[in-house]
Design a protein around this nucleic acid. Structure first.
Length: 556
RNA sequence: GGACCGGUAGCUCAAUGGUAGAGCAGCUGACUCUUAAUCAGCGGGUUGGAGGUUCGAGUCCUCCCCGGUUCACCA
C-alpha cells in the first residue's frame, strides 16, 4: 500500500533521527531543529509543526525531555477507585492527585479546555482553566498535541455531565509526540501496521492491550499451578549442537570463537529430561522454540511453549491433570469454563477422550463407504487401505486428501489419515491418545501393543495445543528409535545421534510423564483471537518494502 | 509456491471510461463544562509502479511490487 509505504518510511526516518547523535545537539529554538529535520518525507508539515511547538515549549522554560514525574495515581487507578464517588464528596475533600498520561483527546475552548489522559490502559478527563493554571500554564496547554505525554497536579471533581475529571492546577510537560496518533475514530485498523508498529496498536486498540495483559495472566496462572505442585522452573539452552526433541526444520547459527554451527532449539525436551535424570523430579520451562517452517494463522517461526516433566507419573496422570488445568485456566482467565472462540462455545469443564483410531472411525465421512474398524486400522496395511479409500472419496467430494511422500509405515498412514480427516473436527476440547510408535520417537510403548505409544495430544478448535506422553526411558530402545529416524532422513530429523542424551538415560531416568503446551495457541483460545499474530507482540513479518535491510522484520 | 481479495490525501473511505472528493488529523481565527466539542477559513494527491487500449484511464488489459485471506508446507 502506498500510504503504508509512506508511513513506514516516515517512521523509519524518524527512528534514524532519534538514533542520530546530531539530534541531541539541539540548542534552542526552531532553527536548529529545522536543520536537523532535513528529511524528504511526506507528512513534513505535521512533523515540522510539532517540532516548532516543542521549541516554543522549550522557550517557555520547560525541559523538552524532562527526566521524571512523581505521580500519585494512574488514570486507571482513579477511574477504578472513584467510579461511584459523587461530585460533592470529591469537592469536599479536594485531595491532591498527580497523574501522568498520554493525551488522547483534546478540546480547546478559548480560555478553557478538556483533554483525556490515557495511562495504564484507561482514560481520565482533565479540565484546564486559564484562571486556574495561569497565563504560562495555559500557553503550554495551547502548545500540546494529541499524543503528547503530560503530568498534571490537581483534584478530582465531576463535570456537568457527571464525568469524573481532574481539576488541573498545574501542568507538567513530559514528552512530545512528534508524529500523530492513529486516526481517532477508526483507530489503527490496518492489520499489517498493527503488527509492525505494535506500540501504536497498543495505544489505539484497547482490545489489543487486553490480549497481551491476558497473555501475561495466563503465564502467571500456569506458574502458580506448577509452583503449587512442587515444580521448579528452569531455563535450558536455546542454542543446540543437535536439534532434537521434535521433528522440525531448525534455524542454523554459528558461534565464532568455538567455530561451531549451532541450531536454535526446536524443543527443550531432551534437556529437561536430562534434568529429571539429575533429580529435578518436577521441572518446567516456559520459553521460546524456533522452527524454520511456514507462517500461518497458527504458526509463527518462534513460539512459546510450556514444557513440564513429572517423575513417577504416566500419560494418564497427565490427562487428568490437564482436565483440571484447562478448566481452571478458562475459569480464572475468562470467568467461565465455557469460552467463546470464533462463535463456537468451547466447554472446558470436560474433555472428550478418543484414541487416534477411534477418532478416525468416529469422523469417517458417512458417504465414504463403510468406516474402518479400529482392529482393521491396526492390522498390517489397514491404515493405508483406509487412507486410499478415503482419498478416493475426498477427490470426488472435493475434500482435502492425504498426499503421502515416499513409502509410509502403518503408523505413519494412521497419523496422516487422522490429520487429514479428523483433526479439524476436534472443536470441543479433546484428548486424543494412543499415537502410533512410528510417529512418536520419544514416547513409551503400550505394554499390550508396541505399535502404539502412551502419548496424547489436546485439540481445541481444530488446533493442537498440547502434546504429552509417558517418556521413553529405555536407552537401548531410544537409540534404536533415533537410528530409525535418522535412517528415514529428511530435514525435520536430527542429523546426528544425541549420544549424551542416550548416556543420560543410561544413568537411569525414573518413569516420567512430560508434556508441552503451546502458550500462543492457548492464548488465542482464551482471548478469542483468530490469528497467532494477534497474541504475539512482534510476530515475524515479511521484510518491509522489498529490498531494504531486514532490521525492521519485527517492527521498529 | 498456487488461488482469491485489496492498494486513491497523514488516517478512514468515496468517485457510469469524462474537471480526483468527504470526514478526521493539520494550520489560522472565535469560543471558560467539552467529550467524535462546535463555528468560519486555509493548505494537503506521481490514485502502488511500468507499459498498453482509448479523443480521454483512479476506473479496462498485461506485467511487476506490496499487503491480507486461504491452500500447500508444518508431530
Amino acid at each position: 500500500m502506498a500510504s503504508n509505504d509512506t508511513t513506514t518510511r516516515i517512521f523509519t526516518r524518524i527512528s534514524h533521527f532519534l538514533l542520530n547523535p546530531r539530534a541531541r545537539r539541539y540548542t534552542s529554538g526552531a532553527i536548529a531543529f529545522e536543520r536537523i529535520f532535513d528529511l524528504q518525507f511526506e507528512p513534513r508539515d505535521q512533523l515540522e509543526q510539532r517540532q516548532k511547538k516543542l521549541a516554543q515549549i522549550q522557550a517557555l522554560g520547560h525541559d523538552p525531555y524532562p527526566r521524571e514525574f512523581r505521580w500519585t495515581d494512574t488514570p486507571a487507578a482513579l477511574v477504578d477507585k472513584y467510579t461511584q464517588t459523587p461530585g460533592v464528596e470529591l469537592e469536599a475533600t479536594k485531595s491532591e492527585v498527580r497523574v501522568a498520561g498520554r493525551i488522547v483527546s483534546l478540546r480547546l475552548m478559548g480560555k478553557a479546555g478538556f483533554a483525556h489522559l490515557q495511562g495504564a490502559g484507561k482514560r481520565i478527563q482533565i479540565y484546564i482553566k486559564k484562571d486556574v493554571v495561569g497565563e504560562q500554564g495555559f500557553q503550554l496547554f495551547h502548545l500540546l498535541d494529541l499524543g503528547d505525554s503530560i503530568g498534571v497536579r490537581g483534584h478530582l471533581f465531576r463535570t456537568k455531565t457527571n464525568e469524573l475529571s481532574i481539576w488541573v492546577e498545574e501542568i507538567f510537560f513530559l514528552s512530545k509526540a512528534l508524529l500523530p496518533l492513529p486516526e481517532k475514530w477508526h483507530g489503527l485498523t490496518d492489520v499489517e501496521l498493527r503488527y509492525r508498529q505494535r506500540y501504536l496498536d497498543l495505544i489505539a486498540n484497547e482490545k489489543s492491550r487486553e490480549v497481551f495483559v491476558t497473555r501475561a495472566r495466563i503465564i502467571q496462572e500456569l506458574r502458580r499451578f506448577f509452583d503449587a505442585r512442587g515444580y521448579i522452573e528452569v531455563e535450558t539452552p536455546m542454542m543446540h549442537p543437535i536439534a532434537g526433541g521434535a521433528a522440525a526444520r531448525p534455524f542454523t547459527t554459528h558461534h565464532n570463537t568455538l567455530d561451531i554451527d549451532l541450531y536454535l532449539r526446536v524443543a527443550p525436551e531432551l534437556y529437561l529430561k536430562r534434568l529429571t535424570v539429575g533429580g529435578f523430579d518436577r521441572v518446567f520451562e516456559i520459553n521460546r522454540n524456533f522452527r524454520n517452517e511456514g507462517i500461518s494463522t497458527q504458526h509463527n517461526p518462534e513460539f512459546t511453549m510450556l514444557e513440564f516433566y513429572e517423575a513417577y507419573s504416566n500419560y494418564r496422570d497427565l490427562m487428568d491433570m490437564n482436565e483440571q488445568l484447562f478448566a481452571l485456566l478458562a475459569k480464572n482467565i475468562t470467568g467461565s469454563t465455557t469460552v467463546n472462540y470464533g462463535g463456537a462455545e468451547l466447554d472446558f469443564s470436560k474433555m472428550q477422550r478418543l484414541s487416534m483410531r477411534e477418532a478416525i472411525v468416529k469422523y469417517w465421512p458417512p458417504t465414504a463407504g463403510e468406516a474402518p474398524t479400529s482392529e482393521k486400522l491396526a492390522s498390517p496395511g489397514g491404515a493405508q487401505e483406509a487412507t486410499n479409500r478415503y482419498n478416493l472419496w475426498a477427490k470426488g467430494a472435493g475434500a482435502p486428501y492425504a498426499a503421502a511422500k515416499g513409502t509410509l509405515t502403518n503408523g505413519e498412514w494412521t497419523g496422516l489419515l487422522f490429520e487429514t480427516m479428523a483433526e479439524d473436527k476436534l472443536v470441543q476440547p479433546t484428548i486424543l491418545y494412543d499415537f502410533p510408535t512410528e510417529i512418536s520417537p520419544l514416547s513409551k510403548q503400550k505394554p499390550e501393543d508396541p505399535s502404539l505409544t502412551e502419548r496424547f495430544e489436546i485439540y481445541v478448535a481444530g488446533m493442537e495445543v498440547a502434546n504429552g506422553f509417558s517418556e521413553l526411558n529405555d536407552p537401548a530402545e531410544q537409540e534404536r528409535r533415533f537410528l530409525a529416524q535418522m535412517a528415514q532422513g529428511g530435514e525435520e530429523v536430527p542429523k546426528q545421534l544425541d549420544v549424551d542424551y542416550i548416556r543420560a538415560l543410561c544413568h537411569g531416568m525414573p518413569p516420567t510423564a512430560g508434556e508441552g503446551i503451546g502458550i500462543d495457541r492457548l492464548t488465542m483460545l482464551l482471548t478469542d483471537s483468530p490469528s497467532i499474530r494477534d497474541v504475539i507482540l512482534f510476530p515475524l513479518l515479511r521484510r518491509e518494502g522489498g529490498g531494504e535491510s531486514s532490521s525492521e522484520a519485527h517492527g521498529a
